[in-house]
């Protein structure tokens, strides 16, 4: 992984030095292990802060909307798809960006690792698909594949779909994954079981909106939850309001979500909120053969009006 970091630093330095970009957005070490932070480097002398490992989960596309300067941005497969979505949705122009593509082998889920070791973690290192966790008087080696974020474990677009430069050879894409096992399980439930499932799912939600804030798709000047004329959603943690928020957020992501997992990673109480967005992702795949963020030329299916759209639901 350190050669990735070296490569990123090298490119960042070159881009800043020759004025190709005004700023590079990448990752730096976080104050705690397993959570790297976004890093905005404007000075070529400071590129050494940039790092790369399996804790770079944050979707950097989230920092792009409405930027005016020229930006070099580090992009995993999912980040690149969100960058595509941003360009299609006029949040930034292609010309403003220098995309540093990073073939990705998945990001680890800090919660899974913490659960696996059960002790305070002081440092983490990784090599050859193994994660070595050390703490006060212990060292434990974990298999990275087993510690992946849920979305990374089923990811089929690990390589960037758009870039100006890729820092390494493409990684092999996963093919034998069932992307929608969890959605299918919910679909198979009878209405009562499904009701209970969602009730339990959202039980812990404290309406902090961290999922919304982490999501690159949520860039509206005013979010519907903050509108007062009319007020769609109450401000309390009333169950109905909580559900309304989650349902509408999912609708807003329909046909646009790249399953980057930012929402789940951000949730402080560990709600698997991807269940909502993935149902709609599955529907878009089945109805329109659509995957978000794969092309600069096509708008998402729910943004386009075509007389020949499937209408089997109308009878």
């Amino acid at each position: 992984m350190s050669e990735y970091a070296e490569k990123i630093r090298g490119i960042a330095k070159k881009l800043l030095d020759d004025g190709t970009v005004d700023m590079v957005i990448g990752f730096r070490k976080g104050t705690m292990p397993l959570i790297n932070e976004p890093c905005f480097v404007k000075d070529a002398a400071k590129v050494d802060a940039l790092v790369w490992d399996s804790s770079c989960g944050v979707n950097l596309a989230n920092y792009l909307p409405k930027r005016k300067e020229k930006i070099g941005v580090v992009a995993k497969g999912c980040d690149s798809r969100n960058i595509v979505t941003h360009i299609v949705e006029n949040q930034i122009t292609r010309e403003q960006l220098y995309i540093i593509g990073v073939p990705c082998t998945g990001m680890v889920d800090r919660r899974k690792i913490r659960l696996a070791v059960g002790k305070e973690i002081l440092s983490v290192s990784e090599a050859d698909g193994k994660i070595t966790v050390t703490g006060d008087g212990y060292e434990e080696v974990l298999d990275k594949q087993e510690m992946l974020q849920d979305n990374c474990a089923i990811c089929i677009h690990r390589n960037p779909v758009i870039s100006d430069e890729v820092i390494a050879d493409p990684v092999e894409e996963q093919t034998d994954v069932d992307r929608y096992a969890d959605v299918k399980a919910v679909e198979a439930m009878d209405p009562e079981a499904r009701w209970n499932h969602f009730e339990q799912l959202l039980d812990g939600c404290i309406r902090c909106y961290a999922c919304r804030n982490a999501c690159p798709l949520c860039y509206c000047p005013t979010c519907f939850v903050d509108e007062s004329q009319p007020q769609w959603v109450g401000k309390s943690v009333d169950k109905t309001d909580t559900r309304t928020f989650h349902f509408l957020r999912a609708y807003h992501c329909a046909g646009r979500c790249t399953d980057c997992g930012a929402c789940e990673r951000a949730c402080p109480v560990g709600i698997p909120v991807r269940q909502f967005t993935k149902k709609l992702e599955k529907d878009c795949k089945e109805l329109f053969d659509w995957e978000a963020g794969m092309s600069l030329d096509v708008r998402p299916p729910l943004d386009t009006y075509r007389p020949e759209d499937p209408d089997e639901f109308i009878k």
Binding site: F224, W232, T240, R243, T244, F247, L248, Y251
Partner: peptide, 10 residues
């Protein structure tokens, strides 16, 4: 809008 459906249920 989905909002109307949800509002009616509410």
């Amino acid at each position: 809008s989905p909002k109307f459906a949800l509002a009616a249920f509410r």
